[in-house]
Design a binder for these strands. Structure first.
Length: 430
RNA sequence: GGAGAGAUUCCCGAGUGGUCAAAGGGGGCAGACUGUAAAUCUGUUGGCUCAGCCUUCGAAGGUUCAAAUCCUUCUCUCUCCA
């Protein structure tokens, strides 16, 4: 168990206690606390979830703690009561989305293994006197010692008073749940340590904290987050998952293999050595990574299919067979209007720029101006590419079987073109 | 409570009455190059019915032909003192 955790674990407080818990034969309560502001789970969360799933496999119980109360007070700009009230509804929605995503990894339909709690259960209506008594159990300097706060203050930033108190709330949650164990990103160590502190004050056995390694996201710099867009989401389709991993900087391949896949350590070392010695093309290593990540999230079959698709489309520079089909009316229109029909989500200015930058091609011919007139005869069918990765097959109704389809046959036939076949991951360069 | 500094487009940060949709950098997007990597070069980076118009420089008012820039009030932040 502990051995299985090792590759993704940053630290354990404490290892001895963890061993004792596991040996006790007791059904353990694992706390899975979550702020529900942005219900967007990604690989970073998955690391924790996979470990919790392991615990479930051994019969332990995961409590999903919705921070509905802490989220409500957590927003410093949420001054108006009206605003807070409105957000209560959003929180419920977000919590549902969160649960749905977590359910992709955790067992959520067995009450013996999973339950949901809300921290408003004990925080809403908590008498102030009781709360102040809790505050008396910590020193201000302890709270302020958190490195994040220090860094912010030193940078001339601000720390709101409620932020200072937030770890107290999160820590007390562990008391309310009687948590035995919590598995969190290493940036949560401080908050969860407060949990141990308060549990001891309350006469409970302090929870064991397993902190997991935090790995830079797709941008190669900061950890994955929704706002930075540098993540592989649990709800991303297999195609996006594969493609996103392929855009990872080379230097992170080994780290990602360790943290996000179950590729055996021996194999990871092998790849690491091959990369270091120039013995393999980094892209091949990354392909193995992308395949492993996609398979873990979506199954081996999808992973194999997306790998073929990727190779055909990007390495082979092909036009994807399964590009979305857009049925358009026949007739003339400006290039800009054509693209706008296909990309209703983008602003026309943005599309105009793309056209000027030469990012739009119709049947291999670059459309260089927004005003260029495009005439689509009845029966026309063509391939439109916008930027590197957006493809559309344009079809115009009308049976007059005329010149339309002239430019076909540019694409070699589908996945069959791949010699390697869907076999094992061996046989690559690494 | 007192004194000072400040709030600018995604971020940092210039800009003290018209030449400002606002320098420069970062980040993003796109093109070249490529392996949807990195590095490099180039372009671009509020919206639209696009030689023009609309919205934007903490908020609301005001002065002016004209305001990010001046005045008033307000909100908020930082620093020092108490």
């Amino acid at each position: 168990m502990i051995e299985a955790f090792a590759r993704t674990t940053d630290g354990i407080v404490s290892l001895a206690e963890f061993r004792r818990l596991l040996d006790s034969g007791r059904r353990l309560t694992v706390k899975f606390g979550a702020d529900v502001t942005a219900p967007f789970l990604h690989l970073g969360h998955a690391v924790n979830l996979w470990m919790m799933r392991e615990m479930q496999e051994r019969g332990h119980h995961v409590v999903f703690l919705v921070g509905d109360f802490t989220t409500l007070v957590g927003d410093p700009s949420g001054l108006a009561a009206a605003r807070a009230a409105r957000r209560a509804g959003e929180i419920a929605e977000d919590a549902a989305a969160f649960l749905r995503q977590a359910g992709r990894i955790l067992v959520t339909d067995d009450p013996a293994l999973f339950s949901v709690r809300r921290n408003s259960e004990w925080w809403a209506g908590k008498p102030l006197a009781e709360f102040l008594a809790m505050l008396a159990e910590v020193t201000a300097s302890r709270l302020m010692s958190r490195d994040m706060f220090r860094a912010r203050l030193e940078a001339g930033g601000e720390v709101r008073a409620h932020e200072l108190v937030y770890p107290v709330l999160q820590g007390r949650d562990s008391v309310e749940l009687g948590a035995d164990l919590t598995i969190v990103g290493s940036d949560q160590l401080f908050n969860e340590s407060m949990g141990r502190h308060f549990q001891e004050k309350a006469g409970q056995k302090p929870q064991v904290i397993v902190t997991t390694r935090i790995t830079p996201g797709l941008d190669g710099r900061r950890k994955q987050s929704k706002s930075l867009g540098n993540f592989v989401g649990l709800e991303d389709g297999p195609r996006d998952a594969f493609g996103k991993v392929m855009s990872l900087p080379d230097g992170l391949v080994v780290q990602w293999l360790e943290v996000y896949t179950t590729v055996p350590p021996g194999r990871v070392r092998e790849i690491e050595r091959a990369l270091a010695g120039g013995g393999c093309n980094p892209m091949d290593a990354k392909r193995e990574l992308a395949r492993a990540v996609t398979a873990r999230l979506h199954g081996e079959a999808s992973a194999a299919a997306e790998e073929s698709w990727f190779l055909d489309t990007f390495r082979g520079r092909g036009f994807p067979e399964d590009a979305p089909v857009a049925s358009l009316a026949s007739g003339g229109r400006k290039a800009l209007d054509l693209v706008a029909e296909l990309e209703p989500g983008s602003s026309r200015n943005a599309l105009r720029r793309l056209l000027m930058e030469g990012a739009v091609e119709l049947d291999g011919r670059r459309l260089g101006s927004a005003d260029e007139a495009i005439v689509l005869p009845p029966g026309f069918s063509g391939k439109l590419r916008v930027g590197r990765r957006r493809f559309f097959r344009i079809v115009v109704a009308g049976v007059s079987g005329g010149a339309g389809v002239s430019g076909g046959a540019g694409v070699s036939g589908g996945a069959g073109g791949l010699a390697e076949g869907p076999g094992g991951p061996t046989g690559w360069g690494c």
